[in-house]
């Protein structure tokens, strides 16, 4: 509203769809704050090998005598534990950054694969319709009638632990959301004139689907992807906490919190507390961005 008008009137800039999108998005200071926090957390996690005070998964750098030190204490080799250390003598700040990197890698990888699978299924269902559509959408309905955690438990109990397996489980959990979203918008798009025009040009079906219809289905897809990435991060942490997700050799926030759980009754709270805060900050910031994206990209709310 106000932002968009300013952008188009106040300056000589032409209002492109992207500029308008940026103006609409930044209208909510909360969402902008979420985006900034998310960007900081994401970059810090990706650069953890360079910026964290120690490599918490290199056993040579750890000293078990530094274990369970409260926040602010100093280790035997002079390293300050800002957020304390865990039972193995790991610096919590470093462990959290490494754990976040794993969370992001797992969530983003599974999100991309699930989006690719789901989009293809959704486009095919919408474009071909009829029996193919009924069959695919029934499969989606059945899949969605089972809660995510149950599907993950079934798969991981049968397949065993591992990074690849948890990514597979997350893909199987998520694809149906993408399929349903893409189908809904593709059904609207395929009746539009530009698709008819493409047909008249005798373009191949795959080209019409992926180059003409798909780009117009992207806005709702982006919203779903944002929310799904937040959900995947939470689910991966939950599964790792339960001991069925990532193997203990991988840095993971869920495992870190599970380790801290053993000591929580004796008042050593920081091993579980700070990784949880890191998870919370990450998930809340993604959800704030997702909420605003939904409002901005929703054609029904477009002014």
């Amino acid at each position: 509203m106000a932002g968009a008008i300013q952008a188009s009137e106040g300056t000589a800039k032409v209002e492109t769809p992207f500029r308008r999108f940026v103006a609409d998005f930044t209208e909510s200071k909360l969402a902008l704050g979420g985006l900034i926090v998310f960007a900081i957390v994401f970059v810090a996690a990706m650069l953890c090998a360079f910026i964290s005070p120690q490599n918490p998964y290199d056993l040579r750098q750890l000293d078990i005598m530094d274990g369970k030190m409260p926040p602010g204490s100093v280790s035997s080799d002079g390293l300050k534990f800002w957020l304390g250390s865990d039972s193995q003598g790991r610096d919590m700040v470093s462990a959290i950054l490494y754990g976040l990197r794993t969370s992001f890698l797992v969530a983003v990888t599974s999100g991309f694969i699930a989006a690719a699978v789901g989009t293809t299924v959704g486009l095919i269902a919408a474009y071909y319709g009829g029996k193919i559509d009924t069959f695919l959408m029934r499969t989606v309905d059945i899949k969605l009638s089972f809660p995510a955690i149950l599907i993950a438990l079934i798969l991981l109990a049968l397949l065993g632990q591992g990074t690849g397996k948890i990514i597979l489980a997350l893909v199987i959990i998520q694809w149906a959301y993408y399929a349903r979203t893409v189908r809904a918008s593709a059904l609207v798009e395929r009746r539009k004139e530009y698709v008819e025009a493409a047909h008249c040009l005798a373009l191949p079906k795959s080209r019409i689907l992926f180059r003409h219809i798909l780009p117009n289905c992207l806005p709702p897809l982006i919203v779903v992807a944002t929310i799904q990435i937040a959900n995947s991060i939470a689910l991966e942490a939950t599964l790792s906490f339960l001991g069925v997700g990532l193997p203990i050799t991988e840095p993971s926030l869920g495992l870190l919190i599970a380790n801290g759980f053993e000591y929580i009754l004796s008042g050593v709270y920081w091993i579980s507390f700070f990784p949880g805060i890191a998870l919370l900050v990450t998930i809340v910031s993604i959800n704030l961005v997702g909420d605003q994206l939904r409002d901005v990209l929703n054609p029904r709310l477009q002014k």
Partner: peptide
């Protein structure tokens, strides 16, 4: 309610134990 959606429930469970069972000692864990 936004926090209720975003908080990983296993972590909330730990914090409930920390607050009500360990610190306050009101409820068993």
């Amino acid at each position: 309610s936004i926090f209720g959606f975003s908080l990983p429930s296993f972590w909330v469970g730990l914090m409930l134990i920390l607050i009500f069972a360990v610190e306050l000692g009101w409820l068993p864990s």
